[in-house]
Design a binder for these strands. Structure first.
Lengths: 327, 327
DNA sequence: ATCAAATGTGGAACGGGTTCCACAAAAACG
DNA sequence: CGTTTTTGTGGAACCCGTTCCACATTTGAT
């Protein structure tokens, strides 16, 4: 593999000249340009990016940590994030952390090892203290990781309120509410608190089902649904994360109840799968593209050296009416 | 940031000794070990991976090219591939190529720039000639890219046969067949040919609808469905890729026809979404985990320097009966 | 014509690990 | 006790592109 020195020799110029030519920096005469171009073609030269990176101490790679890309929320996030990173000239390293408990730590370590310039993390298994030790560009998606780490999230309180009000407006009197594990500190729990608050305020009964932490697989959701149905619980409204709501709706249909006639559904997140089922789900939709864009914008600034303490970004949610509610 | 030379000086040893200590290669006395460990802690030293990579001309990064990670087939593939790459000690760079026409080329160029050690590509927009020029580790997912590039795919012919036989066994007489664009050379077209062949053999009428090339978004599928329904075409069976089949089924249900009573459905791919809809889809399922594992195994070998010309891998498909067919 | 500024160039030093070689001391062996 | 072998060490050279500095030539201004 030819190096810049080979090119310089072949072209009969100095390495500095070749380097300046390659980077369009400083002065290079037309004559030298031509000679270098010739030599490059002749030797089929491509600059070694690694040497560049070593010098600049930058790789232009951002690690994106998610529990699991096959989860629609995260696959959409990753999709948008990759496109946006590309726009900024970054490459994306993808890290699924669900599979192995210390994968998260290992990927964070790549920051110190100079393999990646920054990390966008949508993951929460690690102790917050681990993050505080790292003084490098990190952006948290929907997660509090300490003072210095900016958070990108949606207004979950508003989301909880919208869901509650929708079910109330639909005349629900007994609502099944699937909650994410509340042990973990995350902005998204706000939706549960607010949902419960509004429901109580309107004297609507809620049955809370607490989901296990970090179980995002469909198998688990199905198990939960079967569990609920076998308990013979009656309900006329459901609020839960997309896949949970969908599994629950399917079981409802299978047990010959009408949707939205007998039971209304409001899903949380509003990923594409809520539009893929029949009837289409009414959903509180998170602006995933916005979350991705903001995350990338922030990481770009951080990598660029501008310090942004507590520059959190909160985006608005929106209710998308489907056919699982009548109003 | 401390370097290995700082550590050597602090510990009062040579850089070679520190390097040998870090890599557990060659001789290092207990005494030296202790001194180095001390110095490392004192200086909070982490080796710079970039310098290592420059020397070894390896980054341990594999690029995975897919049109779009939010497509369930690819998100599952990427998910499994990431896990498997991790097992081999590789990191994954994710590249969505759909957004921009020259993204594919740009990502391939990273091979030459030494940014990635290998590429697994599930993408087809580029001219095959482009690939032939690159003599670096490349594995193709479901795609022919020339003599030297190994292909990982399933037995699509078998898949087409299974689908056809299922619809025939269900007594279908007029079947809607959504086909991927056949201009592009890809193993997966086999399923269409075989499907048509078997149908014709059994005198079952098929209506072929050719889909546009590389349009994988839900919006397009919905548009196609609306188009078909507005044409007033009658059919009692449908064969198409997961999302196409699902969109078609939803429209069928909305137009008050019964599934599987009036219309039977067989989906191709069998990603999780076919199990998420109600009724569950009967599907020809691709062993996505197997595809991912084989792709990674091959790229690992290629990166390891063992040449494998034409070592293609063909996996078996399987029919998973759901509730959109009666047999 | 004179001097300053602009244009152009080569190469050493650098970034931070790795490897290899020369050399030394200790251990093993006869 | 002499001689291999093993253990242990330091440092130069290398991987390859970048930057900076010293120096040369040309252009422009006065």
């Amino acid at each position: 593999m030819a190096s810049i020195r080979d090119v310089a020799k072949e072209a009969g110029v100095g390495v500095g000249t070749v380097s300046r030519f390659l980077n369009d920096s400083g002065y290079v005469s037309e004559e030298a340009r031509a000679k270098i171009e010739n030599a490059m073609n002749k030797l089929d030269y491509t600059p070694n990016e690694l040497a560049r990176q070593l010098f600049h101490k930058k790789t232009g790679i951002i690690a994106v940590l998610v529990p699991n890309v096959s989860n629609p929320f995260f696959s959409e996030f990753v999709d948008y994030a990759e496109a946006e990173l590309y726009r900024y000239g970054f490459k994306m390293m993808l890290c699924n952390t669900e599979k192995e408990s210390n994968a998260e730590l290992e990927y964070l370590d790549m920051l110190r090892r100079h393999i990646v310039d920054g990390v966008i993390t949508g993951v929460h298994s690690l102790d917050v203290e681990e993050y505080k030790k790292i003084h490098k560009p990190i952006v948290a998606l929907d997660r509090y990781l300490g003072e210095d780490i900016p958070v990108v999230a949606v207004n979950h309180k508003e989301g909880g309120r919208l869901a509650a009000e929708t079910l109330i407006a639909n005349g629900c009197r007994k609502v099944l509410h699937f909650r994410g594990a509340t042990e973990v500190e995350s902005p998204y729990h706000e939706r549960h608190y607010e949902f419960e608050r509004v429901m109580k305020q309107h004297d609507v009964e809620t049955i809370c089902y607490d989901l296990e932490w970090n179980r995002l697989d469909s198998g688990y959701y199905r198990e939960v649904v079967r569990n609920v149905f076998s308990m013979g619980i009656e309900f006329d409204g459901v609020f839960g994360v997309d896949r949970m709501a969908i599994e629950c709706m399917n079981e409802t249909i299978r047990s010959h109840r009408k949707v939205p006639g007998d039971v209304k559904f409001v899903a949380y997140d509003g990923t594409y799968i809520t539009e893929m089922v029949e009837p289409k789900m009414t959903a509180v939709v998170q602006p995933i593209e916005g979350l991705a864009k903001e995350s990338v914008r922030l990481i770009h600034r951080l990598v660029g050296g501008r310090i942004y303490k507590n520059k959190n970004v909160i985006l608005n949610v929106e209710l998308r009416k489907g056919d699982t509610t009548v109003v």
